[in-house]
Design a protein around this nucleic acid. Sequence first.
RNA 1: AGGGGUAUGGCCAAGUGGUUAAGGCACCAGACUUUGACUCUGGAACUCGCAGGUUCGACUCCUGCUACCCCUGCCA
Length: 560
Amino acid sequence: MDDKEKESNFIFSYIDKDLEDGVYADNRVHTRFPPEPNGYLHIGHAKSSLLNYRTALKYHGTFNLRFDDTNPEKENMEYVAAIKKDLKWLGIEWEDHEYYASSYFPQMLDYAKEYIKKGIAYVDDQDMETIKQTRGNLTSPGTESPYRNRSVDENLSLFQDMIDGKVPEGEKVLRAKIDMSSPNMNMRDPIIYRVRHMVHPKLGTEWHVYPMYDFAHPIEDAIEGITHSLCTLEFEDHRPLYNWFLEHLDEFQHEPPRQIEFAKLNLSKTIMGKRYIRKLVDEGVIDGWDDPRLATISGLRRRGYTPEAIQNFCEEIGVAKANSTVDTAMLEHFIRDDLRTKAPRYNCVLHPLKVTITNWPEDKVEWLTIETNQDVEEMGCHKMPFTRELYVEQSDFMKEPVKKYFRLYPGNEVRFRGAYFVTCQDYVEDENGNVIELKCTYDPETKCGSGFKGRKVKGTIHWVSATEGKPVEIHLFNSLLKDDSRYTLDNLLDKINPKSLEICHGFAEPEVLKLKSFDKAQFVRNGYFSVDPKYSKPDHPVFNQVVPLKSKWRPPKKKN
RNA sequence: AGGGGUAUGGCCAAGUGGUUAAGGCACCAGACUUUGACUCUGGAACUCGCAGGUUCGACUCCUGCUACCCCUGCCA
């Protein structure tokens, strides 16, 4: 009803203007997400793919998924499968609009020949090093290749040799004839085709020439009828070239696509670069692309993030042209927000401290009924066993309480969530002075739900039966990087937060054994957890901490 | 001869010459509370990178500075 107007952004303004000016017939809007299948998607790709997808939805347009597989050196089909899986999971639907740049290769050849015939493309015999030398640099112009003015026929014939596989790699390239003294380096006779004798993941060994991005991309867009080609800022300098390629092709004079650039997403205290991730995997710091500490889509999924949280996050961070780094706290906010009404809430003790209820009978087990999620009535209730021996969190007890501490300490009474008021009577220490057990009493009149109003208690803590509870392994995550200082491949290891992963062996109420992979559970006071599908066994779940709960309680700075 | 971009509170980000410069995150204070969560209420930009100019009026237009980012792959 009060369908809140989606945040506007500069891209929508551009599109609105195009529609107003009638640039595209029938007010059509057609976007695309063009990943190169050479790695896994990360949160930055989520921003981009969602932007393209939602833009199409907003304007009742069309969205294409296109694999930009123009470089057989780094690409393979495993990545396309992984990418499709991640996009689907993110809620992106492309129906049958799934395309591959490589399927346009025959067409692209024709366009390349059209340039040759128009005298604006030539085969260059210079080697890579020479081409690099003659390109000039940022402040001085390049020099023209001696092969720049070959005849159309010679170019055609040489290019055919390249196509036919008669030319060794690196010996010849096809170049666009533009301007070797352009201040824009991209316009200094960019390479259109290079020779590669390789197996292409989709095309096999049939091809010997592969098109370069700058040439291929505008053509791919034009072939598919893309109207707005959204890409990241580093391609801003390529736009003149993008337009140049299209302007010189007869077929694409009608409603050519328009490239619009936006800033890519940076997230604080994490890494997204493929090379860096690979290094961390090689060094054994993380266990793969789907390590829960990574901001890859698969990592976030394994950690327990929901697609909705990522969608909302991407919506809220907006789209602009200013380079920026979004605080991870923002991402965490959206997963808390989403899980609050989705996660069942079970008790789990991460760092167990034994509690004996001295006035509770030895063998008595009382199955208390407790709401599974107080905020969501439909989730119903479940049973939780209360026994003589229990575990509470070590941090829920202090021998000598600091001011404003209202959990357990000698003489203090607290509520055991869903159960009774419990008073700490005494504690037991080992020979080193560590507290290893609490002796407590409970008050039968204070049972949860009995309507007892005799007195109030300041603290409520969570607990698990020591005899009925189940052992669980819990992985707590902190930020992967110590800070946001600049890192390189060389110093990356020094920047890693040594406490990025803490493994706890705790106990959870029996109900958690019913959780399946990807189910989320909120463990009281500690945060949200998900079952880790990678390592969990049915009888001994491994939980990942999706995100900690926020807490105003801060333990005192220092104690003697 | 260099070119292309960007600058709005701690972090994102609206704003396209005319109300007290949206909103979210973070933070602080208070209320509430069977999770110190959640929820609710309240709180900060004498000001929009800096300096000039145009205008009755500028974050929005002009000029000049400054800072940061991108570009010299047969990667995308």
